[in-house]
Design a protein around this nucleic acid. Sequence first.
DNA 1: TTGAAAGCGCTAACAT
DNA 2: ATGTTAGCGCTTTCAA
Lengths: 341, 341
Amino acid sequence: MSGTHVTIKDIAKKLGVSPSTVSRALKDHPEISPKTKKVVTELANLLGYKPNEIALSLRSKKSKVIGLIIPEIVHHFFSSVISGIEEIAIEEGYNVMIFQSNESYTREVLNTQGLYSSRVDGLLVSLAKETKDYEHFRNLLKHNVPIVFFDRICEGLKTDRVIVDDYGGAFEAVQHLIDQGCKRILHMSGSDQLLIGRNRINGYKDALDENNIPLDEDLIVKCDNYEDALAMTADIIKKHPDIDGVFTVNDFTAIGAMKGIKQAGKKIPEDIAVMGFTNSVSSTFTDPTLSSVDQHGTEVGREAIKLLLKRLKDNELEEDHTPQTRIIRTDMIVRDSSRRI
Amino acid sequence: MSGTHVTIKDIAKKLGVSPSTVSRALKDHPEISPKTKKVVTELANLLGYKPNEIALSLRSKKSKVIGLIIPEIVHHFFSSVISGIEEIAIEEGYNVMIFQSNESYTREVLNTQGLYSSRVDGLLVSLAKETKDYEHFRNLLKHNVPIVFFDRICEGLKTDRVIVDDYGGAFEAVQHLIDQGCKRILHMSGSDQLLIGRNRINGYKDALDENNIPLDEDLIVKCDNYEDALAMTADIIKKHPDIDGVFTVNDFTAIGAMKGIKQAGKKIPEDIAVMGFTNSVSSTFTDPTLSSVDQHGTEVGREAIKLLLKRLKDNELEEDHTPQTRIIRTDMIVRDSSRRI
DNA sequence: TTGAAAGCGCTAACAT
DNA sequence: ATGTTAGCGCTTTCAA
């Protein structure tokens, strides 16, 4: 930006009027003569004048920038959240500054501080897996910078939240497996550090309970990625040959599990039915296609930014705000990996 | 940012010194007494003072923000480019503002203007498929805002560029298919609007030529996505039953083609060998796993931001700059879809 | 060793 | 209908 940007002053000088006249003419102020307006806007267009947002920010004390911190941009869920956020933000004249924590607590703290320094008007955050301490967020809240958490929310902080109905989605998925005749269902679960992981486990447990299927803690294993699933699945099946269904915390894990199941010589879905969670692009690419639970990432993004923008519009103090929670319903997408009947 | 941010003035007032003293103390200026420095920094820490980047930007005429325009964030190649960019940008004290064109020319123009208004120090751009007119970029260059194009570059503009060796990657891929015994190779190609599509076609043609395999224009079809590939492939095979290899412009197309091939009752790779391009995450998930050409997205991002930062450091005028082009070599990843021998 | 003043680009209250 | 002035937060020349 050290370049040769045109300013209001430049226009004023060339036209022999004052900067304020130019400013007013440009915003169609009623007390400026039509003649002046015409001359000013014409020259502005000719020179390619664009208001300096930085000057505007300094003056208005509003940067019109929203900070976004997500664990990893390469995850389809998060990139669709971004799309939802951007869509609405741009409509409302806000820009979005995106940072990745890469699941690291340290990075998350640095990102938060950087965003604070950049004077973002508000923050949208999905927590890193590592994060246990929330002081960096509390600090922003103290300075009246509103935060909306989404998906991986922060239980310790009283802020607005958007969560996916993980419990309901998991319950429905497991119920579906049971409906397809499964009785011994393996759950490959996520970090119980994260609420979302715990909620999915609870959905799993309650669905079993509801159907009078005894819970076997051995059938809940911690495994939340492709490589581990690929490595572990065959062994688990060897140990528990009666497993007839698998429900995983995300799609990549499901895809790893499917490979493992095939390696163990079992058929999907006849011998073992599989349900993932996320409904990522890959789920249509696998063989068989993968049943999954859609989390409506775009919708999550839209609701999160809406809550934040409403907060900014209302302009209440942090202490006066009553936190809202929006729950986004999931959708079960049944494909070939679980369809038996 | 309308919140209660601590300023240098606040600190000055509480300490009964002038703002300039505080400013100097905070940056460890040699002419400030150790005592003052200590008192100032202590209070600054206590109050959680963080410099207002917006004020700094206005004063220094450098926003320390890089604008990034990409077609779609959900594509793995682009999200890995982002990671490469962010990594280096943050190290060098820059923030990145990301916009998606969604392949739309209109969006791209709006994004460019918005980024100009936000006074970004420079721009990283990968063109939308629709874009044929470059006036919006030319306008920034005129105002001395440097642009580095990557992957989908702009041939009409003399700027720095980072390109993937699409020609070489395509050549190698097709040579590999030929080495595996293929003689009738179908190429599902991308938009010939984009240079990258044309380069891949040329790599395909030259590899055939090199191996004295006659070119059959009927075996080059325009098809660059999963759905179309799935819909078209079986028909194409029916029409040309001697096809024994497929090379696609990207992985999603390859995955669609693989499904189509299976539907046509052919075996992969025995009857028809398949090579994709991109080496996306999905390529390990398919059955059989998909051979592909890795484009090193992270590396592309790193080189692009490096070129831009060097440009900003050198601080030459646009007209004095000699454009650089960096070519990122591809890597062929052979998996099961093409391995016959 | 510190303070006062000006200015980055813009707008709005207050003149005129 | 237009101009003058001050100030957003910060740094830096110049003065003390």
